[in-house]
């Protein structure tokens, strides 16, 4: 049992943490959220009969825990694919290639909350748009529109960051800053 549990941890704790960070923007909260997800897996995971759905179960659980912790009373607006404008800022892959992981993550954390989660799941690459829809519990069209808009924002921010240079480094919020940021 220990070996099986640790196998699941080894396979998923890194992408789960990065996904949690994209939701919370705070390292300590992402840490807790990841731990809580594995705690739920250890205590309730036996209810999952189809082990092929393990990845989806873990990401969905983490997302639900995040929403629960935020106690949101409002639903996110759904944008239809056809209504989304589409004009991406130009950023070359070679330019992004010169940036490090921390810089790209910090830039992603500046994207609006609504778009961060699907973007992160998309870039973790194990998730198709259908799986993203399942994890976030939203329609497929909504995922597509959020991905498109999220990419718009991310590229604009990356272009801006490249233009400005690396002077204004942004770091994920610490626990003590969360209240102010959410308030």
């Amino acid at each position: 049992m220990d070996t099986e549990f640790e196998g699941v941890v080894d396979r998923f704790y890194q992408p789960l943490y990065r996904f949690a960070l994209s939701l919370t923007r705070a390292e300590s909260e992402a840490f807790d959220l990841t731990q809580q997800t594995f705690y739920l897996w250890a205590t309730k995971g036996h209810q999952l009969r189809d082990r092929a759905k393990l990845k989806s179960w873990l990401f969905t659980t983490l997302h639900r825990e995040f929403l629960g912790s935020r106690r949101r009373g409002v639903r996110f607006p759904h944008h239809e694919v056809s209504s989304v404008e589409h004009q991406l800022p130009v950023v070359a892959s070679t330019v992004v290639n010169d940036l490090d992981g921390t810089t790209v993550m910090n830039t992603l954390l500046e994207v609006e909350e609504l778009y961060r989660a699907p973007l992160m799941l998309f870039y973790l690459q194990d998730h198709s748009y259908k799986e993203i829809a399942e994890v976030l519990e939203v329609p497929i069209g909504t995922v597509m529109s959020r991905l498109a808009r999220g990419k718009d924002q991310l590229r604009a921010l990356l272009a801006d960051r490249v233009t400005r240079g690396a002077d204004n480094k942004i770091v994920p919020l610490k626990q003590s800053q969360i209240g102010a940021a959410n308030g």
């Binding site: 990065r18 992004v96 490090d100 921390t102």
Partner: peptide
């Protein structure tokens, strides 16, 4: 490239 960079982000 964006995906690679994000997957390189260090985990505690």
């Amino acid at each position: 490239v964006i995906g690679q960079r994000l997957r390189e982000f260090p985990v505690p």
